[in-house]
Amino acid sequence: MGRPRAFDEDEVVRAAVRLFGGRAYDGVSVDDLVTHLGVHRNSLYKTFGSKRGLYLMALRRHLADDVGPLLNSLAAATDAATVLRLVTSAYLDLLLLAAIERAPVDKEVAFEVTAALAAVDREIAHALGVPADLAAALTAAALGILVRGNPDNVAAALTHHLGPLT
C-alpha cells in the first residue's frame, strides 16, 4: 500500500499555471517543477504522468479559472473599448504562451488554444453585435496589446480618446 499523497493536487496545478505562465513550457524543467511546486519527482510523474501532463492540466485550469470569467465579462460588454479593457486586464499569460510556443507543435494544446480564442471571439461578436471576423480582429488587437506589454497605457489612451471605459 502506497503512502498517502503529501500535496494538494489542485494547489499544485494552480501553482503550475503561474509557473508555466511566467516562463513558458520550455522554460520550466522538471527540476523547476519539483522545486517550485514542492512535489517529489516520483509523485509528479505518478500523479500527472509527465511534465506535459501537468502542463495540459495547468492549461485547462487556466482556461477555466482565467479565461472562463473573461468570457462572462465580455458577454456584458457594450463597446470595443470595454472589450479591449477587459481582455487586456485579464490574466492570459499562459494562453498567450501556449498559442505561441506549444500550439504549433502540440495538437492537443492547439485544440485548447483554438477553442478558447474562438470562445472569446464568439462572446465579443455576440456582445457587440458584430460579424465574427471583426470580433476576431478585436481579439487579435487585444492580445497584441498584451504581447507588447502596454495594457495600462492603452487603457489610458482609450479613456482619453473615448471617455471612461466603465
Rank of each mutant, 00 (worst) to 15 (best):
V13G: 07
R14A: 14
A15S: 13
A16D: 03
V17P: 01
V17L: 07
L19K: 03
F20N: 06
R23P: 02
R23F: 08
Y25W: 10
G27H: 03
V28Y: 01
V30P: 07
L33I: 11
V34W: 05
H36W: 05
L37A: 04
L37N: 08
V39P: 00
H40I: 01
H40P: 00
Y45W: 04
G49R: 11
G49A: 07
S50R: 12
S50C: 09
S50V: 08
S50K: 10
R52D: 15
G53P: 01
G53S: 07
G53Y: 03
G53V: 09
L56E: 13
R60L: 12
R61L: 08
L63D: 05
A64L: 11
A64D: 12
D65S: 05
V67M: 04
P69H: 08
L70A: 00
L71S: 07
L74C: 09
A75L: 03
A75K: 14
A75R: 15
A75E: 13
A76S: 13
A76Y: 01
D79P: 05
D79A: 12
A81G: 15
V83G: 03
L84N: 04
R85N: 08
L86A: 03
V87A: 07
A90H: 03
L92T: 04
L92F: 04
L92E: 13
L94H: 02
L94R: 02
L96M: 14
L96K: 09
A98G: 05
A98Q: 05
A98T: 12
E101G: 08
R102M: 15
R102Q: 15
A103D: 08
A103G: 10
A103E: 07
V105P: 00
V105Y: 10
V105F: 01
D106S: 12
D106E: 05
K107V: 03
K107Q: 07
E108R: 14
F111D: 15
E112C: 14
E112Y: 10
V113Y: 00
T114S: 09
T114N: 06
A115H: 04
A115K: 10
A115T: 02
L117I: 12
L117C: 11
A118Q: 11
V120E: 10
V120G: 01
D121R: 15
E123F: 00
A125H: 02
H126C: 02
H126V: 08
L128K: 06
G129F: 05
G129R: 09
V130T: 13
V130C: 14
